[in-house]
Amino acid sequence: MTAAGCAHPLFDGLSAYHDLVQSPGWPGIDELNARLSLQGRCLIVQDEALAGDGLHYEQRIAQGGIATRPCNWHDLFNALVWARYPAIKAALNARQCLHIARGGSRRRNRAQEALTQFDETGVVVQVRDAALIEAWDRHDWSGLFAGQADRWRRGDIVIAGVVGHALMEQALLPGRRLVGKCLVVCAETGADVLARIAGAVGAGEVLEDPLELRPLPLAGIPGWHPRQDAGFYAQADYFRPLREGRVYPPPLIIPRS
């Protein structure tokens, strides 16, 4: 069990746990529970007996148990994201449980789809100036990446956190070009962007519809792919044009103190 793909910048936020994903053997559930701080929750083995308890996956988490398949990349990354971003994960879970209580466990509404997409493929982006995402609004990918490469390098636009554990799993596949589904926060350096996201999710301020999420072709970020010339950004099958009528919400704001 090794993951050379963890050298990908997508995993920078999980650097404290790289030994767990690069070890010669899979970490066991007990080992993970002992190592990770899961804020009052614990990992429990997902088996047939657990699946037969009648609880929805999200409801079980609300009671303290995160169903986890042993020797499974998807679930291992989920556990690590719980340890790294507990407030965001708890807010996602609370909103899912709210919708389940209102509409039952068999039907999923638009908000649940949005919550799930962010949970699986979510990325938090921080910008210092909302004008920096005008090119993103238009899907002007060359303008967003190449045209503002210096702003990316200076930290005026930055990946503040990667929540999507399915995105991490896909990053292990060589050559896979990834697309994150993003929430954006406009704030100065040093602001608690992750707390702002957790609060917005918990309050239902965001993720009421999947169309709120901005797609971000991660290979376009300066330094994230070996080829980033004009021809690269012209590949419309990856850097997709804006669909007619698609409008993204403005970024969340953290006022200057």
Rank of each mutant, 00 (worst) to 15 (best):
A171G: 08
G155L: 08
A94L: 12
Y233I: 07
A191C: 12
P255R: 08
W82G: 06
L194K: 03
Y17A: 02
V158T: 13
A91P: 05
S142Y: 14
V247I: 15
A79R: 06
E244V: 12
W224L: 01
E169N: 11
L213G: 02
N78E: 06
R154E: 15
V123I: 15
V247C: 10
R84P: 00
Q59C: 09
V158K: 13
C6E: 06
D192T: 04
Y57G: 00
V163A: 04
N33I: 04
A7S: 12
A146G: 00
P174Q: 03
Y57M: 02
N72G: 04
A114C: 09
F11I: 00
G103D: 15
I66F: 04
L115F: 14
R153D: 07
G164D: 02
R110T: 05
C97I: 06
R214K: 15
F232V: 14
G175Q: 07
P241W: 13
S257C: 13
D209P: 05
F77R: 02
G65E: 14
R128K: 14
L216A: 05
Y17R: 04
D12L: 07
C186I: 05
A94T: 13
L38C: 03
D30T: 12
D229M: 11
G54E: 09
P255S: 04
G199L: 05
A51G: 14
P241T: 10
L32Y: 03
T189F: 07
N93S: 13
N33V: 06
A49F: 10
Y233D: 03
